[in-house]
Design a protein around this nucleic acid. Sequence first.
DNA 1: TTGGAATAGTACGCAATGCGTAATAGCACA
DNA 2: TGTGCTATTACGCATTGCGTACTATTCCAA
Lengths: 112, 112
Amino acid sequence: MDLYGPWLAQLRKGVVELLVLALLRSRGPLHGYGIVQELEELGDLIAGVSTVYPVLKRLEADGLVDASWGAGDEAGRRKNYSITGAGKKFLDEGTRQFDDLHAALGRIGGNR
Amino acid sequence: MDLYGPWLAQLRKGVVELLVLALLRSRGPLHGYGIVQELEELGDLIAGVSTVYPVLKRLEADGLVDASWGAGDEAGRRKNYSITGAGKKFLDEGTRQFDDLHAALGRIGGNR
DNA sequence: TTGGAATAGTACGCAATGCGTAATAGCACA
DNA sequence: TGTGCTATTACGCATTGCGTACTATTCCAA
């Protein structure tokens, strides 16, 4: 029984957004495919293309990242993303919430 | 604009399951309403009744918790839940995955 | 020249779940 | 009788991760 696979997908909901924003802040501007590759190196298949691209699209729609098609030899091929001020703010607040959840779980298991 | 509310709901996906299992392991057997109250004390409205009860139902269906109607004066009113061996195993593995995600985010933001 | 990787992005649709809202029912207390 | 607390259940929506597949460009080797 693979009771575990579907649950993992649920656990990642919301977190991928933070991971992408964090990558854009620390690794500078990146294009979609580059983000996917960075995530691959981070661990066991955190998010593939079919997860990352929709995330980027939504982040852009929400004004958390800026997107622009590459120029010169990249024209029509690479779309570059960079984090905005609102994106940084969201990342900070989101990280804090994520930390809180993580701490809450640790606190429960602490006394046993 | 409340861009933040809906996202928080997504972030909690999967985590509530771990929180409930952790509560059952450290605070012993509990009934649904008691779990909701414990979660309320843990922080800012982590999960209400309409979240916890479906979670318990699913955990029971998956064999991660045992459920039995209370006896005596609790008959027909309280349903008591306790964690199973499979539940403990799932909690351990799930916590590990959660820690990994948390660590991954920290690792990205670390070098900036 | 041709063909197959690798690079880069897009589109479609399913399944799972948090959560708002509300209904039901027993009990206590005034 | 009626108000409020305890306790569980039911319905339905919105969001999102992800499998699968398709298109297009670049580059290297046969």
